[in-house]
Simulated assay, not measured.
Amino acid sequence: MKGVYFLISTLAILASATFLVSASDPSPLQDFCVALNDTKSAAVNVDNLLGLNTLGISLARIDFAPNGLNPPHTHPRATEILVVLEGTLYVGFVTSNSDGNRLFTKVLNKGDVFVFPIGLIHFQLNVGQVNAVAFAGLSSQTQE
């Protein structure tokens, strides 16, 4: 009978231990490298900086002439954070169907930051009389 109690208690302990176990995906980080001092391209992604491979990030500089527009677009696999370095931008995004397709907009000035959530349609428009410059960071190595 001791053997049966031992077996039952062992099974009970093993069954409860499975709830304490957690699992996660391993980090995709394989290696890293230092960026090259090359200003020929305004976008930095895995295509022109191989060290970004598997890091899940990219960066783009956007230069806007007065009334310049980055037309409505989406990044299906990336959240975007935009930092205005110069000028004035009118920016916005449209929420998903479940949120009623609401439009959120804001006028950004030098030093302002705005986040476009992953997969939502968004845009930027220079509403100032001078050129505007912004940097966009994306949580995708391909800017998609």
Rank of each mutant, 00 (worst) to 15 (best):
H73S: 12
P28A: 06
T10G: 14
I118D: 08
L36F: 01
G68K: 04
S58V: 02
Q129F: 01
E144W: 00
V115Y: 02
M1R: 15
V91W: 01
V91Y: 01
R77A: 11
D112I: 03
Y90D: 13
N109A: 10
D112A: 09
L36E: 15
R61M: 09
G56F: 00
S98W: 02
H73A: 10
P66V: 08
I81K: 14
V107A: 12
L125I: 05
S96T: 09
A12H: 07
A42M: 08
V46L: 08
F135T: 01
G111D: 08
S96E: 11
N67W: 02
L49W: 01
V127P: 02
K110L: 06
R61W: 02
V130R: 13
A136H: 02
P117G: 07
G128K: 03
T79L: 08
I13V: 13
Y90C: 11
V130K: 14
K40W: 00
Y5L: 10
L120I: 03
A136F: 00
V130E: 15
N70D: 12
V83K: 10
V91D: 04
G100F: 01
T18R: 11
S98N: 13
M1C: 10
T10M: 13
T74C: 12
V34K: 12
V94E: 13
L29W: 04
N53D: 12
N37E: 11
D47M: 08
D99R: 15
L69G: 07
L20E: 08
A17G: 10
K40Y: 02
D63M: 07
N48Y: 00
V133W: 00
D47T: 07
I13L: 15
T88F: 07
T18P: 11
K110F: 01
I8P: 08
V21L: 11
L36C: 12
Q141N: 13
G128H: 03
F135R: 04
D99S: 15
V94P: 04
N48Q: 09
L11V: 07
K106P: 08
A134N: 03
A15Y: 03
T10R: 15
P76Q: 10
Y90T: 06
V91E: 05
N126W: 00
K110S: 11
E86Y: 01
K2V: 02
N109H: 09
A23D: 09
L52Y: 03
I57N: 13
V94W: 04
E80Y: 02
V46I: 05
V94I: 13
G56A: 06
V4R: 15
S9M: 10
F116V: 03
V44D: 08
A17D: 08
S41M: 09
T88Q: 14
G128Q: 04
N48H: 05
D99H: 15
V34D: 08
L89N: 05
T105W: 04
L59V: 06
D112R: 04
A134I: 00
T10Y: 06
T54D: 14
F93R: 10
P71W: 02
R77E: 10
A35M: 12
N109P: 11
N97I: 03
R102Y: 01
P28I: 00
Q143W: 01
A15I: 02
P28F: 00
V115R: 14
